[in-house]
Design a protein around this nucleic acid. Structure first.
Lengths: 228, 228
DNA sequence: CCTACCGATCGGTAGG
DNA sequence: CCTACCGATCGGTAGG
């Protein structure tokens, strides 16, 4: 990513242009009467997520993030108390969004078989990890050790919610014989297989998320897309 | 790990104590006529592997490593040209050792079924990741992005050798119908499931490496330990 | 949110 | 391998 991202830093002035800015202090921007603090914060989050994913948390400087969001070096600290707080916000956003998407996904599976529900969970998980705007959850997965204890425990609550969505489905499949391994270890191994895709998946190559979902279902429960 | 490791820094003088040290320069140690450079280098490698694994490469300082090996802050650079070179050496050692162990493991499987061979590969892989002296390969797996291009390509050759051990076994199992997913994706998903165990495995808890192997075999090829 | 800046830390080196 | 050190970088802040 280039050191300047002027385009995203200056959205065209639209309906939200106000005469009296609400910003606490600082001078007005050249071309805009108002900045949307929420958008600037989001810009920072997105830039941080992308950099944390590609370089890792410790190897990314707050200056990198500021530059990617089109700001000066000290400005991220206007939006976030510390670099740690930025990391936490990225992860929290990632888990929150992933949970919401999986809940929607399961909702659409009302009355369907456990096999079909597992397929939905797997596919949505791949999309969360590999699809558009997919930097947040991989950061959560691969940078957990950079959090302090308090942050980690807050996030682990969300993680527990996420894993809880899988358990009844896996239990059902284990009871029916489709899933051979004990549910607890099966969940850890299965999610590991999916999470590792972050390391090797390349959208420029042949496989699609649908291909991965088919392969994972075949591997874990011996079923392809056809069988519901 | 404490900041001082005087014990490991001063092995008892044994048969290798020479009157004329071969070291290029520097003053003699109080209690020893000779230091074993090979051991000191190994101490550094081990300390680096442990710290890189637990904290990550970028978050580990060369001072941390020096202290863990009982040295002063500048001393690691007597053994390694740079922090990068230390990382590369850790990874290279890890891959070399893992390759050797898997080759031995397969050798002992001569004439056995593909199922039995896969079990051996899986169990040895878990041991390499989770057993004694298991810091090297996890560093390789989780810090690859910290390498430069030249280092990465040298290691990817070893990685390719490692993966090549799995392919005929998986192909055999796919042909016989025991493995349902295409071999290429099956290998990536399967190794991902195993590699992720680094994130959650806790030897203080119930599961053993043998338990994990059983669960993995049941999950991937629907077979428990009994079936050969 | 920018400017200007600080104190601490870090990888690495000379010289013995 | 230690001592003493350097230059660069980094997270973070005051003040507007």
């Amino acid at each position: 990513m280039p050191a300047h991202a002027a385009t995203s830093a200056k959205p065209p002035a639209g309906a939200s242009a106000l005469v009296a800015p609400l910003r606490p202090r600082g001078r007005p921007r050249k071309t805009l009467l108002e900045r949307d603090d929420g958008n600037r914060r989001t810009d920072l989050l997105r830039a941080a997520a992308a950099l944390f994913r590609s370089q890792g948390f410790a190897a990314t400087t707050t200056r990198d993030i500021a530059a990617a969001a089109g700001m000066q070096s000290g400005s991220p600290f206007y939006h976030f108390k510390s670099k740690d707080a930025l990391l936490f916000a990225v992860m929290h956003e990632g888990m929150h969004s992933a949970l919401a998407r999986q809940r929607d996904s399961l909702q659409a599976q009302q009355g369907q078989s456990a096999m079909s529900q597992l397929r939905a969970l797997v596919q949505t998980h791949f999309q969360v990890l590999l699809g558009p705007d997919s930097d947040f959850v991989p950061v959560m997965l691969y940078e957990a050790r950079s959090l302090n204890a308090a942050q980690r425990s807050e996030l682990s609550a969300l993680q527990a919610e996420y894993e809880a969505l899988w358990i009844p489905v896996l239990t059902d499949l284990h009871t029916s014989g489709a899933l051979r391994a004990p549910v607890g270890l099966a969940r850890l191994l299965l999610l590991g297989a999916l999470n590792w895709s972050v390391q090797w998946f390349d959208p420029r190559k042949s496989a699609t998320v649908a291909d991965l979902t088919d392969a994972a279902m075949a591997l874990f429960v011996g079923h392809s897309a056809a069988s519901t």
